[in-house]
Simulated assay, not measured.
Amino acid sequence: MLKEQVKTLLDGALKEDESLFLIDFSIATDNSIKVVLDGDNGISLKDCMRVSRAIEHNLDREETDFSLEVTSAGAASPLVMPRQFRKNIGRKLKVRTNEDSFEGNLTGTTENGIVLEWKAREPKPIGKGKVTVQKKQEIEFSEIKEAKVVLKF
């Protein structure tokens, strides 16, 4: 019952700001509620507080004892939803599939996957030495085991 009640409150809070979306939602056996959010334009502390209040102020602690944590998906967290990939177009990603690993710029998304592009050094077709070539790889969402944004400092 608590899960349905929290989910309803959460959905209502997310409808107020269409740019926010849910990444993960769980309730442990000790009634600790964890909500992980992301946003098309990033997510602020204010956004997390607003969602937290929308849930907490509508639950009765006299009825059910609970703890609540509303957090954003961290910068180093893996991308798990197509909407997260769309928001990161233009950024460098490291993508691992069952078969291979790729690192390149996310240049686009399709209905079923992503498009990565990068430059690579390959042997010349004729003669000695290497030449720089532009590579492009389309990867379906179903093939992605893990995808992370490569952070630059």
Rank of each mutant, 00 (worst) to 15 (best):
S101A: 15
E138P: 10
F153Y: 13
E117S: 15
L10D: 00
K124Q: 06
S26E: 09
V131P: 01
T110P: 04
M1L: 08
I27G: 02
E143F: 13
D11S: 06
K145C: 04
V51A: 01
R121Q: 08
D30G: 00
L116M: 07
V6R: 01
F66Y: 13
R61N: 13
L2S: 04
L45G: 05
D24M: 02
I43K: 10
D40Q: 05
N88R: 13
V6G: 00
V6T: 01
E18I: 07
L116S: 08
D47H: 15
E138V: 15
V70W: 06
D30R: 02
G90E: 07
K94W: 02
N98T: 14
V95P: 02
I89L: 08
Q5T: 10
L10P: 00
V6H: 00
Q134P: 02
F102M: 13
L9D: 02
H57K: 12
E146V: 10
V36S: 07
A28K: 09
H57W: 05
D38K: 02
N105V: 08
E69K: 12
L14N: 02
L68I: 05
L59F: 08
V149K: 10
T107R: 12
S26F: 07
E4A: 09
T71L: 10
V36R: 04
R91F: 07
F153P: 11
A28M: 05
R91H: 09
F141P: 04
L9H: 02
N58H: 14
T107I: 15
I43L: 15
E4D: 11
G108L: 13
E62A: 11
K87A: 15
E138R: 06
A54L: 05
V51E: 01
D47I: 11
T109Q: 01
L22C: 05
T132C: 02
L59I: 14
S19M: 11
T71S: 15
E63C: 06
P123R: 03
G104Y: 04
G108Y: 08
F66S: 08
I27F: 01
